[in-house]
């Protein structure tokens, strides 16, 4: 079985400071992986690299069987197969929820009809399903800038689901959601991984949720993988060490 993600000795520096150090990783189809780690651990950098948006890194990386380049974006067809849920949502404020979700389908369409707003039947079906799955059907015609933070995050998730990707990369996808919505969304994303055999990697600051929904957890700190374990084997010592270690490294004291 071809791995959906294969990293081999990948490193990256920001302004001379190491952001990723010698990362090697393989993710199989149908597998859900959670990235845990304090802010600045390299989670977003790693996800941007896998999405083909990072420049100037070293090493070997392939996604969905395609070698990534450190100097240019992947081809349009490859980008269409990789869904990304942005931490800051990245919605077009003046467009409706429906059109924002439809934007996720653009990579699957011919360029010209889409310019006039003519979308295919399959595109409408995917958008409607994604809106239902994220509980947004009633808000479909509301403008994105008239939504709450949690609703906006669900639109960003619906856009990714409508894309019908072969791999989902999610940068803290449930950080703005209440517990009920967070569980529903993580269940939806990781459920898609199992039922459709696609890969999922999501970053999070919530060890308990990660343990419940991911098959595997990667502990990341200072750009290095501290542990890579099946979810059931990750202990509270592992996660405590991940966060408290960083606190010591940054000079902060942890008060319990």
């Amino acid at each position: 079985m071809t791995a959906v993600i294969a990293l081999d000795a990948v490193s990256h520096c920001f302004d001379g400071e190491a952001a990723l150090t010698n990362l090697s990783l393989s993710v199989q189809p149908g597998e859900s992986v959670a990235l845990l780690g304090p802010s600045g651990a390299g989670k977003s950098t790693m996800l941007a690299l896998l999405d083909g948006r990072l420049r100037g890194w070293q090493g070997q990386a392939s996604v969905l069987g395609n070698q990534l380049s450190a100097t240019r974006s992947p081809a349009r067809e490859i980008r269409a197969d990789i869904g990304f849920i942005f931490q800051e949502f990245a919605l077009v404020d003046r467009l409706s929820v429906y059109q924002n979700v439809m934007n996720g389908r653009l990579g699957r369409m011919k360029s010209w009809p889409a310019l006039w707003g003519r979308f295919g039947e399959q595109d409408h079906i995917c958008v409607t399903r994604a809106l239902q799955d994220t509980g947004l059907s009633d808000l479909a015609h509301r403008r994105a800038d008239r939504l709450s933070g949690g609703q906006r995050q669900r639109v960003a998730i619906a856009r990714c689901l409508a894309q019908d990707p072969e791999l989902i990369l999610a940068d803290e996808p449930v950080s703005n959601l209440d517990p009920a919505h967070a569980e529903r969304i993580l269940g939806l994303i990781t459920g898609a991984a199992r039922s459709r055999g696609i890969g999922v990697i999501f970053s999070s600051h919530q060890p308990d949720l990660s343990r419940r929904f991911a098959d595997r957890i990667l502990g990341l700190r200072d750009g290095e993988i501290l542990f890579d374990k099946r979810s059931g084997r990750v202990t509270s010592e592992d996660t405590d060490g991940l966060y408290h270690g960083a606190s010591a490294a940054t000079g902060l004291r942890v008060v319990s």
């Binding site: 990789i82 869904g83 990304f84 990245a90 996720g104 653009l106 360029s111 010209w112 310019l115 990714c160």
Partner: peptide, 11 residues
């Protein structure tokens, strides 16, 4: 975000 989803430049 649109570029990441595979949208063309004109899209």
């Amino acid at each position: 975000a649109l570029e990441s989803a595979g949208a063309s430049r004109t899209q």
